[in-house]
Design a protein around this nucleic acid. Structure first.
Length: 475
RNA sequence: GGUGGAGUGGCCGAGAGGUUAGGCAGCGGCCUGCAAAGCCGUCCACACGGGUUCGAAUCCCGUCUCCACCUCCA
C-alpha cells in the first residue's frame, strides 16, 4: 500500500503522489502570535509533523514551510491594549509558539517566513489579480484592495459551498465592497493604526489582508503548485478557501492536497479563547512531560476531535510509560545505548496504518502489541524476540516523534551525564546494601533502603538480572 | 438557511457486514519475601426505532442529541 491522505477539497481519501517524485512540499498555517499557544495549536503542528516524519521515513525529501502571520487586526488590537508596539507583541508570542513546538518535538520547519517580510511578494500577487480582473481597489479612497468573488466562478469549491447559500458576511465595515463576501487582499492604512504597521504599495500605504500572506509565501518557497497545504479545520473557510481562490485566480495551481486537523475539545466543545476553555501549553508543561503531551495528541486520529478531560494526561502518562519502560528495560538487557538513531524498519501493520491517512491510533496499537510480545520475551529471556520487538517499537515510536532515545527526549531524560553518573554510584551502593540484606532475609533493612530511595524520587524495580533504578516519572 | 462531522464498554479511542482494536481504570490469577514492573484472564460496548441479511456497531429508512464552519480561530 502507498500513502493515502484525506483531501478536504475532494472530500475523500486519495492516493498521495508527490508532484515531483521523491520530493514533497508542505505548507502549514502557523501561528498568528497574538497570545500564548494552547493545546489545540500544538495539535495541528504535531499532526503535520507526523506526516512529515512518515514522508521522511518512506524516502521523501520534504520542504516544510510554516508561516508566522505577524501582523493582523488582533495583534494590533492586543498590542494596543497591552501598550506595547505591535511588533514586540507579535515577536514575544512568536517565541512562545516556537518554544511550545520545540518542546513537543516538532521538527523545525525548513523555513518559517513572516508575513511582514513578504510584502513585495504580496504586491506582486495583487498586481496579477488586478491584471486578470479578479481584484479591484475600493472606490472609496480607503486604500483597500478586494478580491472579487463574483469574478471567480469556482469560489467555494474547497468547502463545497455556493456563494448564494452563504450567509452574507456581517462585515461591520464594507468600505466599498462590490459584494459583501469580497475579502480584503490589502487593507488601507487607517489613521488610528500605528504607522509602523503599514507599507507602501501602488495602491497606497496599508497592510496585508489576512489570507494574502499564505498565498504569497507558499508561492515564494514552494512554487505555484505544491503538494500539501495543512491547517486546522476552522481555517477551511474563509482562510483556505480565500487562499485558494486568490492563488488560482492569479494563475497558480496551488495545493494538490488539503489536510485539516480536528480540534481538541473539552466537554465536546472546541477549545477557544471565547469559550474560556483553553489549556495553555506552558501551563500544561509544568504538570506533564512534553513527550506525554505529544503521546496524547497522537493517540487520536488527526481528523477526529480529541476530547480532553482531567484524567486524559494522567492516562497518557501511564500509556506512554508502558512503551517507554519497555524500551528502556529492553535496551538494558540487550546492552543497547540509551541514545542514537532509531531503527528504521517499522512493522508492516504499523506502515499500513500510517499509509491509511496517518492512522496513528492503529499504529500505536501495533506498538503496544509489540511491547506485550517484547515484555514476554524479556521475561522468558528470549534475546532474538526481544531484539525484534525492541527494534520495531523504537522504529515506530520514532515515526511518531516519541522514541525515548531520540531527541529531544533522550537528553531530557538523562539530565546531566555527570550528575547522573554520580547518582548511579551512590544508588548502586545502596542497592548493594539492600541485596546483602535480602540475601540475609533481613527484609526490614532491605525495605528501608527501598523506601528511603523512593522518598528521594528514585524507583527500584527488581528484575531477573538484579535491581534497576530510575527517577520517578521517567521509567 | 447552507456546508461538513459526530454519538462505541467506567474513561480515552480505533474499526466500518462475520474474526481480540489498543490504552487507562477496575476485578481475579501468576510471578515476587513484600513491592514495582510484567504476564494471563475478566469486564466485552456500539444514541433510539424500524428494515435488509444466514449474520449489522458497520448497509437502508426514520427519529433524537451534539459539534464545527459560514465573523477572529489550530
Amino acid at each position: 500500500m502507498t500513502l493515502h491522505l484525506h483531501d478536504s477539497a475532494a472530500g475523500a481519501v486519495r492516493e498521495f503522489a508527490p508532484l515531483v517524485p521523491g520530493q514533497v512540499g508542505i505548507y502549514v498555517c502557523g501561528a498568528t502570535p497574538q497570545g500564548s499557544p494552547h493545546l489545540g495549536h500544538v495539535r495541528a503542528q504535531v499532526a503535520f509533523d507526523v506526516l512529515r516524519r512518515w514522508l521522511l521515513r518512506t524516502g521523501h525529501q520534504v520542504t516544510m514551510v510554516r508561516n508566522v502571520t505577524d501582523v493582523d487586526d488582533k495583534i494590533l488590537a492586543k498590542a494596543a491594549e497591552a501598550g506595547v508596539p505591535w511588533w514586540a507583541h507579535a515577536y514575544r508570542f512568536e517565541r512562545e509558539f516556537a518554544a511550545a513546538y520545540d518542546a513537543l518535538g516538532v521538527l523545525p520547519p525548513t523555513v518559517e517566513p513572516r508575513a511582514t517580510g513578504h510584502v513585495p511578494e504580496m504586491v506582486e500577487l495583487i498586481a496579477r489579480l488586478l491584471e486578470r480582473g479578479h481584484a479591484y481597489a475600493a472606490p472609496d479612497g480607503s486604500g483597500d484592495v478586494y478580491f472579487d468573488v463574483r469574478s471567480w466562478p469556482s469560489y467555494g469549491e474547497l468547502t463545497h459551498q455556493s456563494l448564494d447559500d452563504m450567509e452574507p458576511a456581517a462585515d461591520a465595515d464594507p468600505r466599498g465592497k462590490r459584494d459583501p463576501r469580497d475579502f480584503a487582499l490589502w487593507k488601507g492604512a487607517k489613521p488610528s493604526e500605528p504607522a509602523s504597521a503599514s507599507w507602501d504599495t501602488p495602491w497606497g500605504r496599508g497592510r496585508p489582508g489576512w489570507h494574502l500572506e499564505c498565498s504569497a509565501m507558499a508561492r515564494r518557497y514552494l512554487g505555484p503548485r505544491f503538494d500539501v497545504h495543512g491547517g486546522g479545520l476552522d481555517l477551511r473557510f474563509p482562510h483556505h478557501e480565500n487562499e485558494q481562490a486568490q492563488s488560482r485566480a492569479a494563475g497558480d495551481g496551488f495545493a494538490n492536497f488539503w489536510l485539516h486537523n480536528h480540534f481538541v475539545t473539552m466537554a465536546g466543545e472546541k477549545m477557544s479563547k471565547s469559550l474560556g476553555n483553553v489549556l495553555g501549553v506552558p501551563h500544561l508543561l509544568r504538570e506533564h512531560r512534553a513527550v506525554v503531551l505529544r503521546y496524547y495528541l497522537v493517540s487520536a486520529h488527526y481528523r477526529t476531535a480529541l476530547e480532553h478531560s482531567a484524567t486524559s494526561l494522567v492516562e497518557a502518562e501511564a500509556a506512554y510509560s508502558r512503551l517507554e519502560g519497555f524500551v528502556r528495560r529492553a535496551a538494558e538487557r540487550l546492552g543497547e545505548p540509551a541514545t542514537g538513531a532509531a531503527p528504521e524498519q517499522v512493522p508492516d501493520a504499523f506502515a499500513a496504518a500510517m499509509d491509511d491517512d496517518l492512522a496513528t491510533p492503529a499504529a500505536l496499537a501495533v506498538l503496544h502489541e509489540a511491547v506485550r510480545a517484547g515484555n514476554s520475551a524479556l521475561a522468558a529471556g528470549e534475546q532474538e524476540a526481544l531484539r525484534s520487538a525492541y527494534r520495531q517499537v523504537r522504529a515506530g515510536l520514532d515515526v511518531l516523534g516519541l522514541d525515548p532515545f531520540s531527541e529531544p527526549w533522550a537528553s531530557q531524560a538523562q539530565g546531566s551525564d555527570t550528575a547522573r553518573a554520580a547518582l548511579d554510584v551512590l544508588v548502586r551502593a545502596r542497592l548493594q546494601d539492600r541485596a546483602t540484606a535480602r540475601a540475609a532475609r533481613d527484609f526490614a533493612t532491605a525495605d528501608a533502603v527501598r523506601d528511603a530511595l523512593k522518598d528521594a524520587g528514585i524507583v527500584i524495580e527488581d528484575t531477573p538480572t538484579g535491581a534497576r533504578w530510575s527517577l520517578e516519572g521517567e521509567q
